[in-house]
Amino acid sequence: MRLTRLQKALWVAAGLAIVAFGVLVTIMNRAPEPAAQASFRPTFSLPDAEGRLRTAAEFEGKHLLVFFGFTNCPDVCPTTLSEVGQVMDDLGDEAEEVQPLFISIDPERDRELGLAEYTNAFHPAILGLAGDQAQTRAAADSFHIYYEREDTADASGEYSMSHSPALYLVGPEGDWLRQFTYGTPASDIVSDLQSRL
């Protein structure tokens, strides 16, 4: 079939319009979605309380329920870890398919204060990890989370940590599934997990 110059031009224009429309739809669909919602695979390589290096790869096949916190934290961290303990109890037999992790964002002080004794107080299944500064920053970056040391204004040398207080769920293939914002009731987390296990 022979096309006239006009027909060719029209086909090109139609093609361009389709491409432009596709690009526009893609941009519009992507725009409202925060970067953290996109699928990614968080990784970490951090020592546990006994100093053994633990990595994301060894937990393949399990769901990971991950919290970044510090043991010197009087309010948010105990509240969230007690929720995690409740979740593990309420899951019953299915708890074996879930590994809760407490990743220290204040690793030096937390190791001094006692990491395992702290996590055990909330639930024996919670695995505490505390690396060096570089390992900790790398883990936080891979989860797309924030933390920072906050020194007090006085000269007491006391400091606190500001941090993302949510719980993060990683799937059995290592892919990031979702977050549970701070204050999500244990029962909501349990039913979400039960729908996946």
Partner: peptide
């Protein structure tokens, strides 16, 4: 030895604990 009033504030998904 040092009791203080604090407030946990969650702003833009970051929790901090100002005095």
């Amino acid at each position: 030895g040092m009791p203080m009033l604090h407030e946990t504030v969650v702003t833009d998904g970051i929790a901090s604990m100002p005095h």
